[in-house]
Design a protein around this nucleic acid. Structure first.
Lengths: 332, 332
DNA sequence: ACGCCTTCTGCAAAGGATTGCAGTCTTTCA
DNA sequence: TGAAAGACTGCAATCCTTTGCAGAAGGCGT
């Protein structure tokens, strides 16, 4: 049923080699022949069998992406970038969701290894030892995590935090809470690093947590922040920030009048919240595209050292309605 | 570098046939031999090359999913279901995002056809003529759309609408607006069908739109609904509902005191909105799993007629804080 | 007119796995 | 004890492409 290169060759009255070359090394076959072959192929609806091609070239034309959890709105956007860029480069993408489970993540990489030219790992949860066992099985590009000698695209979260702190400081806030995410997460460490870098004489920053990096981590975090008497909150991510806002609303604390809230990631729902959430935007889609670019050069550029392939994306503070000047300490 | 079946055979001192059979038809090789072979393979880290296998068996062990837009929070959840179920069945999944572009969607199906055993189409945007050209190139399963003689998993949106109407009626609402989505969309037709079925003597339903099925379709829709003087709104989907709520807040209309709002899809952010949005839940993850099940039986069960493979999932109204009794018409 | 260089095309091997067929070795039954 | 059946295993063809090598044809310089 499916039409093979043989069928095209027979129909066009040439050898399979010629058909093959018409597709893969066009300049090697006479214009006239090539046009005729290509036209015939088109007419017959021929599409080269990638599996067979991969068998001999050693390249599959596929790449894999592994994300910790698709229902975390952070990932679909990077996935979208990966997919779009991959398609431009005529690659197909394998998707896997490891459900936040490092062991599963490792298994997935190994299972994929044979059928892809490389794998993109988003916010990998794997331990150093687990990583060791997958490095080398296939080309790897990390997103949001740096691993020695491995290609990676990261976000300048530290810079983002700084922007958030500066923004709040400019508004007049003097005591700010940072609501920490999972202690072991690379992203959280990065954010904390940014916090230290953003430290200023005139601002007091208290760090709370860790809290669950989800909506339901918010309420607990909000209560602690209120108890600390801060006037502004920077949350580990938007989900947590939304949870915080929800809790504040329940407790009758008005955002942004009595409390300013800043999130992280700028997931699409940030702009839809009430009030719309000020957030540090991560350019996830760009990150996805960049990861594919890195992977591509890793595969094609000879002698490219994975360790040299690094790309850091700017973060951008998107100011919306959840931040404002702090309440007058005199009580109006 | 990668270890092949030949390597294992040599190492284990048997022929490649035996190794192959040890994996694919275990009962055909002597227990002792099989154990030894399997152990050797394991030790050497051998994983069969799926491409090579697919070449000869004609089955790839892959399946494809095409979604219209990953950044629409509806899809990642069904994707998650697809992925999970596929992995259980030892299938890998190819993902593609067609950016709401039917032509691209068609091209993607054709591009995938050769490398997958079947494709799952989520909320396909293709026209009848376009569909005609892809049916037959590979096995298809539709989600959220019914096509003649094709396997499909659908949601009982009509039933969901009815639940929403009954809920609002029970609260005392007498005039309700339905905010329509894209006129041509199958989902929208289904919802409208449900609307007619839910029609009751005591309730007046006005249909407005069509509006963009996104957050930014909400404001326009909200204004029209207000002008109609309804006390409750059912939106085409949650995104639109959130846009409506945002606009209502801007215009000083309190939800749910002055206006009740019901969404559709129950995307994760519905519960995080302020107030949390009452919504018709679609069980997207289950839908994804069901689609894979359908595809699998389409592939294995001989003589399974695609047209017979239908699965309809229940919808469930999740009542949250965005719906309440209507304002007293006397003005309190 | 000859040889050489180009340009184009075809032959055949290779890549990793599956599988029909045939061969070997045991076992069983008469 | 011999033959037939049964249980395993191996050989080799096959799936669809790519690609090194060699052959064919045409052009050019001398």
């Amino acid at each position: 049923m499916p039409v093979t290169i043989q069928d095209v060759a027979r129909e066009a009255g040439v050898s399979v080699s010629t058909v093959s070359r018409a597709f893969t090394v066009p300049e090697m076959v006479k214009d006239e022949t090539r046009h005729y072959v290509l036209a015939t192929a088109e007419r017959m609806g021929y599409r080269p069998n990638r599996a067979a091609r991969g068998l001999i070239t050693g390249k599959t034309g596929n790449l894999g992406v592994i994300v910790p959890d698709l229902s975390n709105p952070f990932f679909p956007n990077v996935l979208k970038g990966v997919q779009a860029r991959a398609r431009e480069a005529d690659y197909a993408v394998f998707l896997a969701d490891c459900d936040e489970n490092p062991a599963e993540e490792m298994a997935l990489v190994q299972a994929m290894a044979k059928q892809v030219d490389g794998v993109i790992l988003c916010s990998s949860r794997m331990s150093a030892t687990q990583l060791e066992r997958v490095v080398g099985t296939t080309s790897l590009v990390f997103i949001n995590r740096q691993v020695r000698d491995q290609a990676a695209v990261t976000m300048d979260a530290a810079g983002g935090i700084r922007q958030a702190v500066d923004h709040l400081a400019a508004l007049g806030h003097r005591k700010i809470a940072y609501l920490s995410g999972p202690r072991t997460s690379w992203s959280n460490r990065e954010r904390r690093r940014g916090l230290r870098r953003a430290a200023r004489e005139d601002i007091e920053i208290v760090e709370l947590g860790p809290f669950a990096p989800r909506f339901d981590g918010g309420p607990h975090a909000a209560d602690l922040a209120l108890a600390e008497g801060v006037t502004a909150i920077i949350a580990y991510n938007d989900l947590m920030a939304l949870g915080v806002m929800s809790r504040l609303a329940d407790r009758g604390v008005s955002v942004p009048r009595q409390m300013s809230v800043v999130g992280f990631d700028d997931i699409s729902m940030a702009g839809m919240a009430t009030p719309p959430l000020t957030s540090v935007s991560m350019q996830n889609e760009r990150a996805g595209r960049a990861a594919v670019d890195l992977l591509l050069s890793l595969l094609t550029v000879t002698g490219a050292e994975a360790g040299d392939l690094r790309r850091e994306l700017e973060c951008q503070l998107i100011v919306r309605a959840s931040t404002a000047v702090p309440p007058d300490p005199t009580g109006r």
